[in-house]
Design a binder for these strands. Structure first.
Lengths: 218, 218
DNA sequence: GGCGAACCGTAACGTACGGTACGGCTTGCC
DNA sequence: GGCAAGCCGTACCGTACGTTACGGTTCGCC
């Protein structure tokens, strides 16, 4: 289990210039993947390699800082669970689903996940942990309160929020992420994402919705 | 869309010695990941680098051959859809689910997927296509006939087999594969896999099972 | 036995790239 | 103005590794 404490915000203590450099590195990472070179980053960011090494230590440090920098940007608004009814719960779930599909199908996410996957296993850095913590685990942390509010409101029935979340995750993501990571072209239009989000939400409600006052389930 | 024609069996025309070399390369790939070196492969396989280059062209060729070689080994028995009732359908689905979980949580699959993901995007080779074709798409090809047999037998209801398959895929895999690829420890015991397979199957039946003569769904 | 093909082991080559050093420029401070 | 700090651009160094070359050995075949 990774479960790195996620509250520490390492993205501070970055000057504007440093953020600009990391943005350049990020763009290059999206274009070139893990075979980006320090020289290329320096050129793209119009800075010297000496500066890169002074600021980030070494190549792995630069990569880690870049991933964390991007991660710090994707904090999404919390959905609060006040005055919950079936309509607003459904809307929240659809919102989560479509946000998540949007994220995992973005060039940036794909590039970051590719790099992190490539580095996992060769225990040099913890890119995988960072990505996981700011992706899948952050999503769970934001969604679980909604699920539990839904349960308190009598709209959902489940024993374990973690298990319910994982099912929701599966219904939303299905094979999308692995296919994209493996290079499958898979055009996700705005409309397709909306449709998938609605479908996943309905399926989730069919599985975990309380069996009171709704049309015959399925 | 990749959808490389998968029927061509490129694993033939390999001598026993070549298979042994690829097995060595595969073992090394599991241990070292993508940063394995040609020298290491040669040493592990007790062959000369000259031979590696003669047989496989270059490093990418060796990697591709290794991935294809492993892919050719995982052909799983087809399940035929004769005399289908709910019990045998359920058993088939559970079997597929647990086989799939077994595969994606194996060291070999993780290593291969990591390498393929790392190479995707840098269009040099098509490792991603190979992995996808022998993983997710092969699974669909084997499972869809079962789903359609279930529909003909009046046990399942769905409009599109592809969509139904993808939901099943999502219910089975959930977040397991991406977490493993990103380096999350996630011990999947035999028992846990069996439980997950049963749960995913029940959820799938709750969503797509025909509403005749079954106990209250969910 | 002689011969050629295939292959092993190892040495050698070339290069790409991570990392370092250094000269010059700008900026802020005394 | 003088000086120091920070940074850019670039040249430089060392090494790891992909790729090639080559001498020596085995093995099938005549």
């Amino acid at each position: 289990m990774l479960h790195i404490v996620p509250e520490i915000d390492t993205s501070q203590a970055l000057t504007e210039r440093q953020k600009a450099v990391l943005d350049a590195a990020l763009r290059l990472l999206v274009e070139e993947g893990d075979q980006l070179t320090m020289t290329a980053v320096a050129r793209r960011a119009s800075c010297s390699k000496e500066t890169l090494y002074k600021w980030f230590g070494d190549r792995d440090g630069l990569l880690t800082a870049t991933v964390q920098w991007q991660a710090s940007k994707v904090r999404v608004a919390q959905v609060d669970g006040k005055g919950l009814d079936l309509a607003s719960l459904t809307a929240s779930l659809e919102r989560f689903a479509s946000d998540w599909l949007q994220v995992i199908s973005s060039d940036t996410s794909i590039a970051l996940n590719r790099v992190a996957v490539g580095h996992a296993g060769s225990g040099k850095d913890d890119l995988g942990a960072v990505v996981l913590e700011n992706g899948r685990f952050a999503l769970a942390k934001r969604l679980k309160p909604v699920l539990e509010a839904g349960r308190r409101a009598g709209l959902l029935e489940f024993a374990d929020a973690e298990t319910a979340f994982r099912t929701f995750f599966g219904l939303v993501a299905r094979d999308v992420q692995i296919r994209l990571l493996l290079g499958d072209r898979l055009e996700l239009t705005e409309a397709a994402i909306g449709g998938d989000a609605a479908r996943a939400t309905q399926q989730f409600l069919a599985l975990f919705g309380a069996k009171t006052g709704r049309k015959a389930d399925s």
